[in-house]
Computed example of a mutant assay.
Amino acid sequence: MSESRERASDETSDTMVDRVHGGRPVLWFLVKGNRVLVAAAMLAVAYAVLVGLGQFGPGSITKLFEPDPVFALFTPIIIGIIMGVSLVLTFNQLVLSEELGPVGDQRRRMDDAMAFREDVEDAVGRNTSPPEPSVFLRGLVESTGERARSLLEALEDDPHLDDATCEDIREYADGIVADAERVAGDLEGQQFGQFEVVESALEYNYSWKIYTGRRVRNRHADALPNAVATEFDELLNVLEFFGPAREHFKTLYFRWEIINISRALAYIALPALAVAAYMILIFETGDVAGTTAGIDHGLLVVGLGFAVGVTPFAIFLSYILRIVTIAKWTLAIGPFVLRETDRGSDVEWE
């Protein structure tokens, strides 16, 4: 079976948009979209649902002219903001506690990081690896493309391989060259802390590349000359370094995002508390009598106060949605694909 047909599965595609059910809109909502805009979209939906139910659902709008419903709505919001922000800040300290370890732990972390860098430098044939995550990942991706080109050159230099073997290997290597150029271009100029670095790393479906590469390599092992087999092994070796590098930068990005969540909640919590307190202590529905497009002004203002009051929760939810989605997509490391694949009975032990 051709390797390109195996990769044709949506779940093993080279691009994220093809691997996500729902396409670009769902991908934007889950991970790609600006988190403030995603939170605003969720708040807009919540506001519209509340106003719609208040206007067209069963019940009477006259309840809004009594103090108890407003008090009952905004009192839990105040409690939720205070407790929620406190819990997030506590969680933030737990996540970042690793940064506060003794010097021995910090030295081991340093040694492990330097050892990994040296191993990568040996694998890609460079003397010094760059410090920036995006440049480091781009170098690894470009290295896989270079190794794939070397594999193609070794293949062309050997006239004794049969056509089926050449076609199988050429198809695999060509796919890596094209995908490496695409992802390397996306990584160029990106600054760590922005989602684009992690996004580009997720675009490079290294797990499927390792699996299909090992499969092609082992399928034709007896027929491969030494030069081709060596180039194949070096390509797979570089691909195997991409997994730990991506996981390391993903972990750092998660910590970065948790800090962003804490900062965002610190900025929003007090204004949201002030609005909720105003709705309880001062606001009276009768002061905004009238209708717009048949919708009572009291309902519109109470709905707006509700949306502002739950803004900290919406911000928190939008960030967590991205973090847990990325975590789900990257649960396994190496040639394990947890998502469903269009494999039929062909992806089996060989």
Rank of each mutant, 00 (worst) to 15 (best):
A180I: 11
G22N: 04
A276E: 05
G54S: 09
N34Q: 08
Q55I: 03
V308D: 02
Y211R: 09
Q190H: 00
T90V: 08
A184E: 09
V183G: 00
N127V: 12
S2F: 12
L265A: 02
D122K: 14
D287K: 14
H160Y: 11
Y253F: 08
S200L: 02
P67M: 02
K63G: 08
G334L: 15
V70K: 14
N127L: 11
L96M: 14
M110E: 14
D186T: 07
D168Y: 05
L96P: 09
E171R: 12
W349Y: 15
Q191R: 10
F136W: 05
P271W: 00
L273P: 02
A154Y: 08
R343A: 11
I259F: 11
F74D: 03
D346Y: 15
A173W: 04
V31Y: 02
V141M: 04
G185H: 12
N237D: 10
W329I: 02
G57R: 07
N237L: 10
W329C: 00
L73S: 04
D18G: 08
E118W: 07
L338G: 13
I81N: 05
I326R: 07
G125M: 12
L161H: 09
E6G: 06
T128E: 14
E340K: 13
M114W: 09
G145V: 02
F29T: 10
V70A: 14
P131E: 01
A123E: 06
F65G: 05
E348D: 03
V135W: 08
T285A: 02
D342I: 05
A307D: 00
L270P: 07
F313N: 01
L100A: 15
L89R: 13
V275P: 08
P69Q: 15
V103N: 12
L281N: 12
L53V: 14
E142G: 10
I333A: 14
A115N: 09
L338W: 15
A221T: 09
L299G: 03
Q191S: 11
G104T: 12
P335L: 11
E203F: 06
A113D: 12
A180Y: 01
D346N: 13
A39C: 04
L224I: 06
